[in-house]
Amino acid sequence: LQREDPSFRAYTDEQTLQTIIAGMGELHLDVLVDRLKREYGVECNVGAPRVAYRESIREWVKAEGKIKKQTGGRGMFGHCWIEMGPLDPEVEENFIFENNITGGVIPKDFIPSVEKGIRDAMTRGVLAGYPVIRIHAKLVDGSFHDVDSSQAAFEIAGSLAFQAAAHKAGIHLLEPMMDVEVRTPESYMGDVIGDLNARRGQVGKMEDLGNLKIITALVPLSKMFGYATDLRSKTQGRAVQSMQFAKYMAVPDNIANEIIAKATGE
């Protein structure tokens, strides 16, 4: 199909693991899905793409992670204290780890294991299994056992410390926000703005371009599926829109609760 139609694209989203098909519009995709079924015998479960939500924290906290097991032979012991908080907005990195251990309370060989445990826990998420982003972690204290401590034990301790800190620091859900630009005749401007507001959009500036009005807004990606078709319907096909990713922002609590419940099956 891609060889026959250059405007059709199909790819796998690395974050959601969905197969995404993209084309010139919803009617174009409907035709392609029908061709897949009729000409190639491929049945498709079609729906809107999944939204790549993220999780993050609100404040600095201190938390402990400790594992202590004794099973008759060699045991498992790992213990660490971390301070954790959100990264400053101007920092480009997604995760910073600082080793502030003094006096050898945790041997140097085990410190990378604590970092690995935190990184692994970030990928699994805390609230709903979405990756955690924008984290600054400082390893500040801990203890070890001469025989029972190991890299695996300190990985677990790091993961436990991260999870404890995340809950204390106000873990919350983030959603991708899109910069949306709509060019519409002035007579439809009220309908366009009303529709953007109904999609939880934050309307920004409005400018003139000849006989057109240019409206810019910040809108959640989850509310933008099918927007091109709706816009054409509301403006008799006379308005056009474009959008691109802007940033992640906190999801309102009532909506976040619904997303978390759906993700966790509760």
Rank of each mutant, 00 (worst) to 15 (best):
K213Y: 10
M24K: 15
I171N: 02
V114Y: 00
G210F: 07
K234P: 01
K69I: 11
R183L: 15
V203Y: 06
M243S: 11
M84N: 01
H167I: 11
L160K: 07
A63S: 03
V126R: 07
I214Q: 04
Q244T: 13
A164M: 05
E55L: 03
E93Y: 07
F77Q: 00
R3G: 12
P49V: 07
D34I: 11
V132M: 15
A152S: 12
G237T: 13
D148Y: 02
G201K: 00
M249H: 10
P86I: 04
Q202V: 13
D230L: 10
Q151C: 13
G47S: 09
G73Y: 02
E181G: 08
K213G: 07
G72Q: 07
N45R: 14
G23H: 09
T235M: 06
F97C: 02
A153G: 03
E175I: 02
G226L: 07
M243T: 04
F8H: 05
V51E: 06
M177E: 06
S222Y: 03
M76Y: 01
V46W: 01
P252R: 08
R9K: 15
V240R: 12
A228D: 10
G226A: 05
V182T: 08
K168M: 10
I20W: 12
A22I: 11
D191T: 08
D141L: 03
G73R: 04
N197H: 10
T16V: 08
M178R: 05
K66P: 01
F8P: 00
V33L: 14
R35G: 08
A261P: 09
D179C: 02
G25C: 09
M76K: 03
V33M: 11
G170M: 06
G65W: 00
T235V: 10
G65S: 07
R3Y: 15
V147I: 12
L160S: 09
N99D: 13
H28P: 04
G47V: 03
A121H: 02
